[in-house]
Design a protein around this nucleic acid. Structure first.
Ligand SMILES: [Zn+2]
Length: 405
DNA sequence: CGCCTTTGACCCGCGC
DNA sequence: GCGCGGGTCAAAGGCG
């Protein structure tokens, strides 16, 4: 998967819409220097308005076309945020808004990532629209990407938005269907995936609870909720209207349990792993091998120890960094100062990055707003404005079907 | 039979 | 205050 690319977009919540967002592009291409996704993450905002706190979104873009197999069955999303007890940090309340950041804006961002980073937050408003138009589909949350780069297959983009559309408050089921108003919503992470498959397998089971038509798109947006008891993670899936091959998947919340796949992996013998790695490894495995649906099975089949080992080797850098960097914010900061080094060229690298990224997500989720929050400022590359997801009230009749991702 | 999708109605924030 | 639009609820039905 040399060519795979990914972009991440984070959303965070709340308050109002600030419409500021940032996108960073990372070239994932082989040619480019490799960095882990994590690495690529934009620097964090130093803070932005407290006022607004909130909503940042991340967008991850992956080009799966090249590796279709991978996509389909694989769980790409290992990236997902999970709160597994084992692996993760204790769930934090996501309320705090917090940190803001300017980082993105910083010109300084080192990044050799290179890619381009542009920013624009200020103008967001205006920009938004234009962007939005361009990217209808993205309406997701504003993440947008440029076609060109995307095409490039390699390139990762990471975007952070501050605003979000509305908040969704997670609805807590209340007697009268009321939603919580305040919008404390966990950060939302969006993945952009190039694939023919609508619903990528991320290792978790989901139940569809709604579908709405997307404004300028022939494709509807589907809403899913994790079926695990007590787990309120939600995800939205929508196909890009402009690029049929692109699927936008956004996750909200942290899983409070292990994914079925992970569990499986665990069974296989990963036990000796230090806590926390199990999952990653598993993921790693998926990615690398992962082609095909059989991925799980295959993965399992593979020797864990070997993988584990690889994992360790590959990810040393990342891990260290991770440790060092508890929060995204921190991470970013560190990033600014010293760019981490990871390689993304090879599949392995990719893995690496994914692991990193994943961690990032975890952190983000765990710490929520703190981490990502605000970035308004900066943008590195493209700005993404928060778009509105379009949706009309009517429902499209398109069914998607698959439920279990 | 349990799990899941479908889908119209409803909730709710926001802009006008 | 009204309508829009995103997001969610929940009854009904489908499927393995
Ligand atoms: Zn879950």
């Amino acid at each position: 998967m040399a060519n795979s690319s990914a972009a991440a977009f984070l959303d965070e919540i709340p308050n109002k819409k600030n419409k500021e967002s940032c996108i960073i592009n990372f070239p994932f291409s082989p040619a480019l220097p490799s960095h882990s996704i994590f690495d690529m993450i934009p620097s964090p905002p130093s803070q932005s308005g407290d006022n607004h706190h909130q909503k940042a979104s991340s967008f991850v873009y992956m080009d799966m076309l090249t590796t279709q197999d991978f996509t389909t069955s694989s769980t790409l999303f290992e990236w997902f945020p999970t709160n597994d007890p084992d692996l993760q940090l204790p769930p934090l309340p996501i309320t705090s808004p917090a940190a803001t950041s300017e980082v993105l804006n910083n010109p300084a961002t080192p990044v050799s990532l290179s890619s381009s980073i542009s920013s624009s937050s200020h103008e967001a408003g205006v920009a938004n629209k234009s962007v939005a138009e361009n990217e209808d589909e993205l309406g997701f949350e504003g993440g947008v990407e440029e076609p060109d780069e995307k095409n490039g297959d390699h390139g990762i983009r990471l975007v952070e938005n501050q605003n979000d559309q509305q908040d969704q408050t997670q609805k807590q089921v209340k007697p009268a269907r009321k939603r919580k108003n305040t919008k404390q919503r966990p950060p939302r992470i969006t993945f952009k995936t190039r694939t023919d498959v609508d619903h990528l397998d991320d290792g978790y089971r989901w139940r569809k609870y709604g579908q709405k038509p997307v404004k300028n798109s022939p494709y509807p947006r589907s809403y899913y909720r994790c079926t695990a008891l007590g787990c309120e993670v939600k995800k939205r899936i929508e196909r890009s209207s402009t690029e049929a091959s692109v699927v936008l998947t956004s996750y909200e919340g942290n899983h409070t349990h292990h994914s079925p796949e992970k569990m499986r992996a665990a069974n296989f013998g990963m036990m000796h792993n230090p806590s926390g790695f199990q999952e990653q490894i598993h993921q790693h495995h998926n990615i690398t091998d992962g082609v095909g649906d059989g991925a799980l099975g295959n993965q399992v089949a593979m020797s864990r120890s070997q993988q584990y080992q690889q994992f360790l080797d590959q990810n040393q850098n990342v891990r260290q960094q991770q440790q060092a960097v508890p929060s995204l914010l921190d991470y970013n900061n560190s990033f600014n100062t010293a760019p981490p080094v990871s390689v993304v060229n090879s599949a392995d690298n990719f893995m690496d990055s994914s692991a990193s990224f994943r961690r990032l997500l975890q952190n983000q989720e765990n710490y929520g707003e703190h981490n990502l929050v605000r970035n308004n400022g900066g943008l590195l590359q493209d700005m993404v404005v928060p778009m509105e997801m379009g949706g009309a009230r009517a429902r499209a009749g398109v069914g998607e079907g698959t439920s279990r991702t």
